[in-house]
């Protein structure tokens, strides 16, 4: 008995503070959130009753949630993740060729990530201005000055794709990060493997496709998971871009506004729970996969 404690004890003591913090601040609050989501709490006075899944079923009848928030966040996630992956990959492929000044380029591409989403949104709000003629600024102005008869309403467009315009600032912010992930992956491929392929007569595209690509799969997986969960929980970018514009409304924004403007605590908790579920569907399979891969 003593021996077992001696073996386990120091380790346990070491991680105990973080275990306790985890138990309270993660699982405790998670549980509290779920508890609130099945109550009728509205306004400043907490209600500790039990209304079953009423808040959830009400959300499925909620036009804002079903017809705007959910399609919006799905569309945004797809465009943002695909865009950031494509740009990040392209940048990595270019840098991997050992350009002169690679260090400088790498830093330049990575810099936007150091800017908070709020600041990013304020810059891009100006860049994505959709005013007419002389009064417009940003990208539309650039196109006009370059003589291109191309004008977009971006996130103020009447189309359902309006929210996809926000993928531009989001992608601008994170594609440098994706680039560095891919670049690390590419550099991790041993040179002798490439060499062997070349000796076997493979040209550069074939080396990439048959040797480098399979080894980038884990990088791709982590990039997708990181981007997807950032996308689902993004709040500040939309918040600062155009407040309460329903075209760029998402579940995270609805949760905040309904809880803190309206005092609908139970409804906000239900949205939070669904958001958690959404993120879990992205992440849990990934963890399952990586744990199994590690064991093999």
């Amino acid at each position: 008995m003593m021996r077992r404690i001696r073996a386990w004890g120091p380790g346990l003591v070491l991680i105990l503070p973080s275990l306790i913090a985890l138990a309270i601040f993660v699982y405790g609050f998670l549980g509290w959130n779920l508890r609130v989501s099945v109550s009728s709490w509205r306004g400043l006075a907490p209600a500790h009753d039990f209304v079953g899944l009423a808040n959830y079923t009400a959300l499925f009848d909620d036009v804002r949630f079903t017809r705007f928030d959910v399609p919006n966040i799905a569309l945004f996630t797809v465009v943002f993740v695909a865009g950031a992956l494509a740009v990040g990959f392209a940048l990595a492929a270019l840098l991997d060729r050992g350009l002169p000044g690679e260090q400088a380029f790498r830093s330049i591409y990575l810099f936007p990530m150091a800017i908070s989403f709020i600041a990013t949104a304020i810059i891009w709000r100006w860049l994505l201005d959709n005013g007419d003629g002389e009064s417009t600024t940003g990208l539309n102005r650039l196109f006009a000055d370059a003589g291109l008869a191309w004008h977009s309403d971006w996130f103020k467009s009447g189309s359902r794709w309006a929210i996809a315009a926000i993928a531009l600032p989001a992608g601008w912010s994170l594609s440098g990060y994706v680039m560095s992930l891919f670049l690390a992956g590419m550099r991790g491929v041993p040179e002798d493997l490439r060499e062997a392929a070349r000796v076997d007569g493979a040209n550069a595209p074939r080396v990439f496709w048959h040797v480098v690509r399979p080894m980038l799969l884990p990088v791709l997986m982590s990039a997708v998971v990181i981007l997807a969960h950032i996308s689902l929980k993004t709040f500040d970018l939309f918040y600062a871009m155009d407040q309460k514009n329903i075209k760029i409304d998402t579940p995270a924004l609805y949760m905040w506004f309904t809880t803190f403007d309206g005092g609908f605590y139970a409804r906000g908790a239900a949205i939070a729970a669904l958001l958690l579920l959404g993120v879990a569907t992205v992440i849990v399979p990934y963890i399952w996969y990586s744990v199994r891969a590690e064991r093999r």
Partner: peptide, 22 residues
């Protein structure tokens, strides 16, 4: 344990996505 531990980390980051920020 590895599964549980990884799940724990994930849930922690998720929770921060929804709760901490607000």
């Amino acid at each position: 344990s590895p599964i549980a531990a990884s799940l724990a980390t994930v849930v922690m980051s998720l929770m921060c996505a929804t709760a901490c920020s607000k």
